[in-house]
Structure formats: C-alpha cells, structure tokens
C-alpha cells in the first residue's frame, strides 16, 4: 500500500475501505454489538493500556467480531490496570483486571465467543439486598 501522507490520501483510503465493506447496519444501534471499554487514565496508560487496546482492535478484526472498542477514564481499580469493561449484547457489563495480551485472547475466545466467565473479573456489579 502506498504511504498515507496527506488528507487526500486518507480520503482515497476511505473510498477504498467504503467500497470493500458493506456499511454495518449494527453501527447505528450499539446495544446489538459487543462493547469494550479500556480504562485509559494515567494509571491505565502507565501500565500499558494502549497496547491492550491495540491488541483488542487487531484481534477482533481478525476474528471478524462486530465490536466497538473505546476508551474510558479510571474505574478506580488502579491496582489491576489495565482494566477492560466488556458488555455483551443484552447482558450486564463485566470488568476484567490485569488485561495483558494473554488475557485479551482469553476474553475474546472464552467470554465473548462462548459467553463463559473467566478468572480475573472485578465484581463491580456487586449489590446488596437493600438495593
């Protein structure tokens, strides 16, 4: 591929991409796709959340899973950074801690694909009986 050096090149690239993919119908209703939020505050960045996020985007693309990967602030689990919140369609959000490359693969293969829970979940959804 030729090098992208200007906005014009980027436009060309966009046209190529656009003709290749059919615009995903799902992108308009984010509830129907997997949502992944990577904690990217100071603590996250310092412990390598950037790599985790890149790896997520790459792996999901390879596995052809429809997902929205975004970043979010600190969730308050600085000890377990990088943290990742995964929301499967029609399910409650689950937060995973210490997500390195290995964990990313595990999350995609086991949790996202098969829906089975894995180790390393931080229980944010904990609610007492009064609530």
């Amino acid at each position: 591929m030729t090098k992208i050096k200007s906005m014009a090149d980027l436009r060309k690239l966009k046209d190529e991409v656009q003709s290749k993919i059919k615009l995903r119908e799902n992108s308009d209703n984010p509830e129907q796709v997997v949502q992944i939020k990577v904690g990217m505050a100071t603590c996250g960045i310092a412990s390598g959340a950037k790599n985790t996020m890149n790896y997520f985007i790459e792996e999901l693309e390879q596995e052809a899973i429809d997902a929205v990967v975004t970043q979010t602030g600190c969730m308050g689990f600085c000890y377990a950074e990088p943290t990742v919140e995964v929301t499967l369609p029609n399910k409650e959000a689950v937060v995973f801690g210490n997500v390195g490359k290995e964990k990313v693969r595990e999350i995609i293969n086991v949790y996202i694909k098969r829906g089975e829970l894995i180790d390393g979940i931080i229980p944010v959804n904990f609610r007492t009986i009064d609530e």
Binding site: K3, I4, K5, M7, L10, K14, V17, E58, V68
Partner: peptide, 28 residues
C-alpha cells in the same frame, strides 16, 4: 472536523482507517 469530513460515514475504528491516520500523522 477535518477528519470527519474526510472519512464521512466510515468509522474511525476501521483497521485500515486507523492505520491510515496513525501513518498520516507519523510520516508527516
């Protein structure tokens, strides 16, 4: 706004677009 105008409806998240933007900035 410049990026949005150039990309139209194609998502920033698209892998080629992502690599394109990063390459555009870093090579320039």
């Amino acid at each position: 706004s410049e990026l949005r105008e150039a990309l139209g409806k194609v998502s920033l998240q698209n892998k080629e677009v992502r690599d394109g933007i990063i390459e555009l900035i870093n090579t320039t």
